[in-house]
Amino acid sequence: MNPDKKQILVHYEKSIVWVKNLVNVTEEQWRTPIALGKWSVAEVIGHLIPWDEFVVSKRIPFLFTEDNLPKSPNVKEMNAHAAYSGRLQSKEETIEKFVNGRQHLTNALHHLTDEQWQQSLHIGGSKLTLYRYFSGLMDHDLQHFLQIQKVLK
Score class of each variant (00 low, 15 high):
Ile123Asn: 09
Ser85Leu: 15
Asn107Tyr: 10
Thr106Met: 00
Lys71Ile: 00
Asn107Gln: 14
Arg132Ser: 15
Gln118Lys: 14
Val55Trp: 01
Asp114Lys: 01
Lys71Asn: 06
Asn21Tyr: 10
Thr94Trp: 03
Lys97Tyr: 09
Val151Asp: 07
Ala83Asp: 04
Gln118Pro: 00
Val99His: 03
Tyr133Lys: 09
Pro61Asp: 02
His144Thr: 04
Gln118His: 14
Thr129Cys: 05
Lys127Met: 08
Val44Ile: 04
Asn24Ala: 13
Lys76Met: 08
Thr65Gly: 09
Leu88Glu: 11
Gln149Asp: 09
Ile16Glu: 09
His111Thr: 14
Lys20Met: 10
Gln89Met: 11
Met78Thr: 09
Val99Trp: 03
Glu66Ala: 15
His110Tyr: 15
Arg102His: 12
Gln143Pro: 04
Arg31Ile: 02
Thr129Lys: 14
Leu48Tyr: 04
Leu105Val: 00
Asn100Pro: 05
Lys6His: 09
Ala108His: 12
His111Arg: 14
Lys76Asp: 15
Gln119Arg: 15
Tyr12Val: 03
Asp52Thr: 03
Thr106Ser: 15
Ser72Gln: 13
Tyr131Gly: 15
Leu152Val: 07
Glu93Thr: 07
Val55Asn: 02
Ala82Cys: 03
Ile8Tyr: 02
Lys97His: 12
Glu66Met: 12
Trp18Leu: 15
Gln149Asn: 09
Ser135Lys: 12
Asp67Gln: 14
Gln89Lys: 15
Asn68Cys: 10
Ile148Ala: 11
Val25Pro: 04
Lys5Asn: 10
Leu9Glu: 13
Ala80Ile: 00
Thr94Glu: 00
Trp117Asn: 03
Gln119Ala: 13
Leu130Cys: 08
Thr106Glu: 08
Ala108Met: 13
Glu96Thr: 04
Thr94Leu: 00
Glu28Tyr: 08
Gly101Phe: 10
Ser15Gly: 02
Pro33Trp: 04
Ser85Tyr: 01
Lys153Thr: 12
Asn68Arg: 07
Leu63Trp: 07
Lys153Arg: 13
Val25Asn: 02
Asn2Lys: 03
Arg59His: 05
Val44Cys: 12
Leu121Arg: 02
Val75Pro: 09
Leu9Trp: 02
Asp4Met: 05
Gln7Asp: 09
Ile60Ser: 08
Asn107Leu: 08
Asp139Cys: 10
Leu63Thr: 01
Phe54Val: 11
Asp52Lys: 13
Ala82Ile: 03
Ser85Cys: 10
Tyr84Met: 06
Asn24Glu: 12
Trp117His: 11
Leu88His: 10
Ala80His: 13
Val99Asp: 06
Ile16Asn: 08
Lys91His: 06
Trp39Met: 13
Gln149Phe: 01
Met1Lys: 09
Tyr133Ala: 04
Ser72Phe: 13
Glu28Ser: 05
Pro33Ala: 07
Gln29Pro: 00
Val75His: 11
Leu121Ala: 04
Lys38His: 15
Lys150His: 15
Asn74Leu: 08
Ile123Met: 06
Ser90Arg: 14
Ile148Tyr: 05
Gly37Gln: 04
Glu66His: 13
